[in-house]
Design a binder for these strands. Structure first.
Lengths: 337, 337
DNA sequence: AGCTCGTCTGAAAGCGGTTTCAGAGAACAG
DNA sequence: CTGTTCTCTGAAACCGCTTTCAGACGAGCT
């Protein structure tokens, strides 16, 4: 940093101490307020700092303090509108506690994920794992590393790891209940990434749904993007489903786009229900029936749990946040044949 | 990091060197491949690393190497769908060059922005300033810090700073041309954040528009969110505008939502045109007429310019990326009175 | 005045790596 | 067999900051 050819040399604490005619220790004390210092020296230090434009080197501080002042967040896909809002909240919490936020994206690749987490652990005080896709075994191995970490939208039973998740099963159960009430009997579920915990949690709701008299068939769609939803429509139309449940809103929107192209009426001929409610808040007044989750609270709480973990090593019970059904325009009674 | 009470102590390079019966220097050489080392020692080192689960401390490496291996990105609003895609691309480029990405959000607050950039400079090899809102003077002061930095969507004349931007003026000119061609004569522009460079660039197009016979009135809306657009509709309806140009898509969508509530037909009674084309790619097949920008290329190029800057201090000419008009469903001929 | 105690300061020892530097051997030539 | 050169290794310095530790100094007490 300081010796880049052609760049002016970085000013260090000893430059300041020289200019202020005090020791480096004193400069440090003044800047961090860790001990009383004679007011005369204090102002000499401040003057020198200002004159020289001194900024402490974060790496050196981290090394000396044994703390990076940084938290790391790993998300599967930055471009998925779900995460930025979460990041926003996490970032705010981190900042409130004087920490920076490092962000990495795994591109939904479980193998890469492992590697990235390892890297995050090398440069962050704690890491937040958002919707990890990696196999349980790897996850457990990472947890064993004994590094502050909180899981987001994934619970690992028995591992005693702090985690925060949305009650996906509960949310999907509400969706099923809604459809059953409208009179639907058969629905198709456009599944998300395979081996995704969140997907499994959603699917769990379909058992209970049978009790409502709703039979849900899983259509492998295997993605969390609108493209995946768009492509999966064909399979749905071959079935006798009168409603489509999507892994998330993007998938649902993709499906709707395709249905519109095919002139299939939504919801007259086919109801489509999303999941996550990504569009509502930002792109005001979306009309997709979906279940919402307070992403901002989710991020905030996640950040707080991590912070808690960093300060006093107390581990917390897994936190579950409820989802809320948002009935809008894309769901209705089944078409009468 | 290593001495957190209750946590297992961090394993350091000297633990490895002891276990492998070599010097720390050799361990470093093996791990970084900076010099030939006897194959016997190499394998001893690798064994020790594996057995101990050694991971080099990033802060120590940063300090010793004089490089953090990190780039910083400052965005005004993470939740604005514009940025995640850019971040995604930047992150990919950074990773390809072995760097991590730090993200900060200024919440559209120019004052905070300055502070955050300073902080980023303390812990990143280079920083990418996305759409900085801060006053020119402050920006110049930061640029003077002689720290690798690239400006994104803002050009500071004469400062010789590498920058990459979208040709906002060109994009807006296309929009005006489109409207003029449809027969519009008077339009209202829902302005973005005041003191925003991007906003000024858009407004510049309105002069040229007069040549097309289109008179554009600026309506202070002062935000970049859908809420701002929603709220600004009232002012527009009081004018004689037959078309609305928005600072960005969010604003446009907010306006459309409000217009729908008020039962004003779009585009029959009022054309609405967005800017940025945020909705297209992710939330497939949006129907907003807008101008698009290859956000992903934007992010990628930005990352590359920064990397370039870090490697060999060569500064580049400002880069401008063109926008493309996307005519969709929300624009049409003006209503005949 | 002499002592103890408390407060403030600077020197120095880390933090965990990388890199320079010099020395030990091995290889080779004369 | 000796003298050079070359290759590889470890000791030590260093990166920039924090924190311990011990010492200097002044105040308060007997």
């Amino acid at each position: 940093m300081q010796n880049r050819p052609g760049r002016s040399p970085r000013v260090t604490i000893s430059d300041v101490s020289t200019a202020a005619m005090v020791s480096a220790a004193t400069v440090s004390r003044v800047l961090n307020g860790t001990a009383r210092v004679d007011p005369t020296l204090v102002s000499r230090v401040h003057d020198a700092v200002r004159d020289l434009g001194y900024r402490p080197n974060a790496a050196a501080q981290g090394l000396a303090r044994g703390e990076w002042g940084t938290i790391g967040v790993l998300v599967p896909d930055l471009a998925n509108p779900y995460f930025p809002e979460v990041l926003k909240a996490v970032s705010a919490v981190a900042r409130a506690h004087g920490r920076r936020m490092m962000v990495m994206e795994s591109d939904e690749d479980p193998a890469l994920e492992f590697e990235l987490v390892e890297d995050l652990m090398r440069c962050c005080d704690g890491v937040l794992l958002a919707s990890p896709r990696m196999p349980r075994a790897e996850l457990v191995e990472l947890l064993g590393r004994d590094h502050p970490m909180v899981l987001f939208n994934r619970v690992v039973a028995g591992a005693g790891v702090p985690s925060i998740s949305v009650d996906f099963t509960g949310g999907m159960t509400q969706v099923c209940g809604h459809l059953a009430q409208l009179g639907h009997r058969r629905a198709a579920y456009l599944s998300g990434p395979s081996a995704s915990w969140g997907n499994d949690e959603r699917v769990r709701a379909f058992e209970a749904a049978r009790a409502f008299g709703l039979e849900v068939t899983v259509v492998e769609c295997g993605g969390s993007t609108s493209q995946a939803g768009y492509d999966a429509v064909a399979a749905v139309l071959e079935s006798d489903a009168t409603a489509v449940l999507a892994y998330n809103d993007l998938v649902a929107l993709g499906a709707i786009a395709r249905l519109r192209e095919l002139s299939v009426g939504v919801p007259e001929e086919l109801s489509v229900i999303g999941f996550d409610d990504i569009s509502l808040e930002r792109v005001a007044h979306s009309n997709l029936t979906t279940v919402s989750v307070p992403r901002d609270e989710l991020g905030r709480r996640a950040g707080e749990i991590l912070e808690q973990l960093l300060v006093n090593d107390s581990d917390t019970e897994p936190v579950y946040l409820p989802m809320v059904l948002q009935v809008r325009d894309t769901s209705g009674p089944p078409a009468v044949p």
